[in-house]
Design a protein around this nucleic acid. Structure first.
Length: 287
DNA sequence: AAGAGGCCCTGATAGC
DNA sequence: TGCTATCAGGGCCTCT
């Protein structure tokens, strides 16, 4: 499901609804995610207060008192849902992403005093991990590249990392060791607005293009955050507070549609790069 | 050692 | 309608 903007929306929702609240019970219905949820997770977080909530790339980080952390990754299909105890049917729409609580694939119930937060993940590509120190948390992220909003994501960094890289720029943007937080939707969008062909090799990216990537990755992601993220596929018809950035995609999922650039009469085409759908305007993104 | 592709999994949808 | 094939906001692992 989510890339950086969607996780950011979840984070913002949680800050409103869950920060400074205490977990009074944890019910694990199904431990099978990308990594098995540890058996004694409940004992580790029971009766603990969530004192802060962060996002790092596509990860949600819950911080408890005393430097204990829970990280949540949503994989392709993970979602969080808030259910109020005084009305079992009504879900709280301030939470990304689904309107209603799904019947299947609810893996974990985090119980609070007056509500529950439920982690649902049909495809099980997401995971939940606990760390009991700052060092262990940092260690988990040590191989991750900067998130596009971090200061270390700058000209020098990109120049250095792109030098002699044979890998194409699309795969580089998707490589979390290189930049973390960008996924398939936003990689496509960023390359379109940067007017860079996704197949262009890293080593051939010019300084001018590096500057474009720096600037445009931030602007595209920021715009998506402002729109509440992207809600596509099974989410696209639901109403409520889900994101609307999908309505503004320039290229993603726009095969055979008109290029949105002014003075361009081309159609968006879809190609395959490393088994991920890649959408380009061949005219605007010449090699 | 970097880079490409397979694979993990379920569900929605398109095409026959 | 009911098959089957393909595809999906990700990323770890294996092979070359």
């Amino acid at each position: 499901m989510p890339e950086l903007p969607e996780v950011e929306i979840v984070k913002q929702s949680l800050i409103k609804g869950v920060q400074f609240k205490k977990i009074t019970d944890v019910i694990i219905k199904n431990r099978n995610l990308r990594f098995k949820i540890e058996k004694n997770l409940k004992n580790k977080i029971l009766n603990k207060n969530i004192n802060n909530i962060y996002r790092k790339s596509k990860y949600l980080i819950l911080k408890f008192d005393k430097n204990e952390f829970l990280i949540i990754h949503f994989g392709m299909s993970g979602t969080l849902h808030k259910i109020k105890d005084n009305n079992k049917i009504k879900t709280n729409l301030s939470f990304y992403h689904l309107k209603n609580l799904p019947k299947k694939h609810n893996h974990v119930y985090f119980i609070f005093k007056n509500f529950k937060i439920i982690y649902n993940d049909p495809r099980r590509f997401g995971f939940i991990k606990y760390f009991n120190s700052h060092q262990k948390l940092n260690n988990f992220f040590k191989n991750y590249g900067p998130d596009p909003f971090e200061k270390s994501f700058n000209i020098e960094y990109l120049k250095k990392k792109l030098k002699d890289k044979k890998k194409n720029i699309k795969n580089l943007l998707l490589d979390q060791k290189f930049i973390s937080g960008i996924g398939n939707i936003y990689a496509n969008e960023i390359l379109f607005y940067s007017k860079i062909n996704p197949l262009k090799k890293g080593e051939n990216i010019s300084n001018y293009e590096i500057n474009k990537i720096l600037k445009i990755s931030k602007s595209v992601l920021n715009k998506a955050i402002k729109k509440g993220g992207s809600s596509i596929r099974d989410f696209k018809n639901s109403k409520g507070k889900e994101g609307s950035f999908q309505e503004e995609f320039a290229v993603y999922d726009r095969e055979k549609k008109n290029c949105k650039s002014r003075n361009c009469n081309s159609k968006i085409i879809k190609i395959n790069i490393s088994n991920r759908s890649t959408y380009i305007c061949n005219y605007c993104q010449k090699k």
